[in-house]
Design a binder for these strands. Structure first.
Length: 420
RNA sequence: GUGAGCGUAGCUCAAUCGGUAGAGCGCUGGAUUGUGGUUCCAGUGGUUGGGGGUUCAAGUCCCCUCGCUCACCCCA
């Protein structure tokens, strides 16, 4: 006997009936995003490692120690995508999409990979539902992207979620602030946590949202990012807030919210949800005005977000989940001595009428056929027995009501379609 | 990468001081051969994660290893 092989660490099988919930969430995303003029984009799961080094940033943990990177048979360094904004930007440049009607609005749904120790809400293979708007720099774009996100979450039935909002300024403001912050923190280096000391050199802005109490003390007197914003960055942020106000979006400004990816500029945001333990961010996003150019394209702005689908489903409102799990199947069973083959034939007739049908494939007693149909969550069972066959009728049993009636076989499809 | 907790049937868990593994749920069938859910009966279920050690005897004690979970970190 060989050893049992199991799914690799940090990956998992999504099984029925749960997959119905995933499908319903994804359907809602497609519909909602479609209503804002977004189309689907599908980029490869595998990319040139250099893509992520240049976009996400060499100094980030994602690129530095969390990527699945390997060399292929020709010695090229490839990586499993840890996120998709970089891929979308790459595709945009590669296909010269700047000459299409801008802004380009695309969304994606799919697996991503990061090599981390798994814990609640964190997997090595995880799914993201994301959207990107490329080619418009105005604050209305930031606002509409957030409105779309909020609408999607409300379609799923979420209530009381608050968008955490901040600006990291444009490149000029951000660079000025980075210098100011390092200048202030350097003399306090010894008081910082070891992680923050490391970040001082690699990614100083991230020290701002450190969870370490020691860091909080040092940060008390730190310069504030908003004081370093130039007029353009400050005005942009005000306009975004104004738009969210106008549409009654619940948001809160979090001056310490910075994000771990290097490409973010100006607006950044997150949504966190209760019930997820330490990994409580279900959405993260922001503007990335320098990314397309960094990847060799024209200087074009962009903004987008990514939703952690695994986490989203973990805290999905119960009503949406229940609705998604409702089966609308009709079961067809033959009553001995009528054979199962005849039930299958009847099922095929109904499927031709576009009805979803579960046919009983094995000759078995009515008792077990009904029991099985009941467990499958079916509402209607069509019974075909000797009497029915002789008279050209069928008996339809309503498992919820416990009632049944016999009708001409020709009326069946219409009857079932009409019934809830 | 660091730390803590936990691995017994498909699932949730029992098993006294170390004495040779059990229940519920599930699944399959049956309880007047054409009627489900509740109930009752029967059947199906395990190399106790794996390996080694101590012992007359190990699910139980010791060591190693693998895995799971949570937290740090990171972020969706």
């Amino acid at each position: 006997m060989g050893r049992k092989i199991q799914a690799v660490k940090g990956t998992r099988d999504l099984l029925p009936p749960d997959t119905a919930v995933w499908a319903a969430v994804e359907r809602a995303a497609r519909e909602t995003f479609g209503a804002y003029g977004y189309s689907e984009i599908r980029t490869p799961i595998l990319e040139d490692t250099e893509l992520f080094v240049r976009s996400v940033g060499e100094g980030t943990d994602i690129v530095g120690k969390e990527m699945y990177t390997f060399t292929d048979r020709k010695g090229r360094s490839l990586s499993l995508r840890p996120e998709s904004t970089a891929s979308v930007a790459r595709a945009f440049v590669q296909h010269g999409m700047h000459s299409a009607a801008l802004p380009l609005k695309v969304y994606y749904i799919g697996p991503h990979f990061r090599y981390e120790r798994p814990q609640k809400g964190r997997y090595r293979q995880f799914f993201q539902i994301g959207a990107e708007l490329l080619g418009d720099a105005g604050p209305q774009s930031d606002g509409e992207v957030i409105l779309m996100l909020v609408r999607f979450l409300s379609v799923l039935g979420f209530e009381g979620l608050v968008v955490q909002l901040n600006t990291v300024g444009d490149e000029e403001s951000r660079e000025a602030y980075r210098k100011g912050l390092v200048e202030y923190l350097e003399p306090h280096r010894e008081a910082l946590s070891p992680d923050s000391q490391r970040r001082l050199g690699s990614n100083p802005l991230r020290i701002l949202d450190s969870k370490d109490p020691a860091d909080h003390g040092v940060l008390q007197g730190a310069p504030r990012l908003e004081d370093f914003l130039n007029a353009s960055s400050a005005g942009h942020f005000d306009a975004v807030c104004e738009m969210l106000d106008r549409h009654d979006v619940a948001y809160s400004i979090e001056p310490r919210l910075v994000r771990g990816l290097d490409y973010y500029t100006r607006t950044v945001f997150e949504i966190i949800a209760a019930g997820l333990g330490a990994q409580d961010a279900i959405v993260g996003g922001g503007r990335y005005d320098g990314l397309i150019e960094e990847l060799g394209g024209q200087p074009l702005p962009g903004i987008g977000f990514a939703i952690g689908e695994d986490r989203l489903i973990e805290v999905l409102p119960e009503r949406f989940r229940i609705e998604a799990l409702k089966a609308s199947l009709v079961a067809v069973a033959a009553v001995p001595p009528v054979s199962a083959a005849e039930a299958v034939a009847l099922a095929e007739e109904l499927r031709s009428e576009n009805l979803p049908v579960l046919a009983e494939l094995t000759d078995r007693s009515v008792r077990s056929a009904l029991k099985r149909a009941d467990r499958a969550g079916v509402k209607w069972v069509v019974l075909l027995g000797e009497q029915e066959r002789a008279t050209g009728t069928v008996t339809v049993r309503d498992l919820e009501q416990g009632s049944q009636e016999t009708m001409p076989r020709g009326d069946l499809a219409t009857y079932l379609r009409r019934s809830p």
